[in-house]
Write a protein that binds this DNA or RNA. Structure first.
Lengths: 177, 177
DNA sequence: TATTGTTATACTCTATAACTATA
DNA sequence: TATAGTTATAGAGTATAACAATA
């Protein structure tokens, strides 16, 4: 941390009760924390992707949901929740909106009368083609200065972290980043 | 993605309009994305740390703020905002609460009459000793199966990402993770 | 004219409790 | 008794606009 030059006027020995102005901010401790760095990186990458998805009327979570439905036709809301770490009450509105928007269809589950199987419509598939193209491009762009090998290493280490960390008490959720 | 065995009853050729039950969920595409993995990892690590900090009456952002004030006595709110990527209106209430709580003091800035220099009180320093100890321990615990070398690599790569990614249009903020 | 700190406010996200229908 | 889907709602986080005081 660098400071403005206060050596001329107010020079005093001992602890300074009114510190001089801060010129350069020291965040060295925070930068040792995995949590701090992971949060900052996640916000940076998502900050690049989110505006583009917003143009398609999607949030990043909407995108994850539609991706998962596309790759797992017939999946239930309950399975989506545990896969993406969402709470059921927060998924209901999204699924309902996607249905109204004609992106997905719900049909009776073949094995469980309580559940509904989810599937993309043709419109949903088409929207996801655009969304996936944009997301893949921007995600790579956000990895910017990382070599392909570095990005692969980074992704592998991140997976190791969240696939190892004990899921929080009830279901593994904790407010915002 | 594995499915329940539907080969006996409803066997039909061609595209399946009512897919059988999903048994194992495929998230292989999402797992290629840096944004997805960084977000999941950040939520997992913070999910371990946040409950412990909550016992001390702090959020993870409160902790980052107090850390930064401690390591940069005399820092202004404006500097905190740009350092931690916060919006001024959202910082005001936190600073005010920390002041009322006796964790920090605000005094006139030596060089700028509009600004206030921030500093921890003795109580603030004491609270931060506990908070930092807990955070360091839990952050390391969350890095769990990673070797020290792997954690160092991970942190370095994450820094490279968020220190490189172009700060979003106005100031670099984008809602939640 | 630009910036610091601030108020007010809207919007989104996250979380809990409770209900119904079915297993 | 437990689970899937749902409703309602509380609480936290995030964002914009606008203002006074000062640079």
């Amino acid at each position: 941390m660098k400071r403005a030059d206060a050596s001329h006027p107010d020079r005093r020995p001992g602890p300074v009760t009114r510190p001089p102005a801060v010129v350069e901010v020291d965040t060295s401790y925070l930068q040792t924390l995995l949590g701090y760095n992971a949060r900052r990186a996640a916000l940076a990458v998502i900050g690049v992707i989110a505006p583009r998805l917003a143009e398609l009327g999607l949030t990043v979570v909407d995108f994850s949901i539609l991706c998962t439905i596309r790759d797992n036709p017939g999946i239930t809301s309950s399975q989506l929740c545990s896969t993406l770490n969402l709470l059921p009450p927060n998924l209901v509105g999204k699924i309902s909106a996607m249905d109204k928007r004609g992106l997905i269809v719900r049909h009776p589950h073949p094995l469980d009368g309580r559940a509904l199987g989810l599937q993309l419509t043709d419109a949903g598939v088409e929207l996801m083609m655009q969304a996936e193209k944009a997301t893949t491009e921007l995600d790579n762009a956000a990895a910017g200065t990382l070599s392909p090998a570095e990005k692969a290493t980074l992704v592998a280490l991140l997976k190791k972290v969240y696939q190892t960390v004990p899921p929080a008490p009830q279901a593994g959720r904790v407010s915002n980043l």
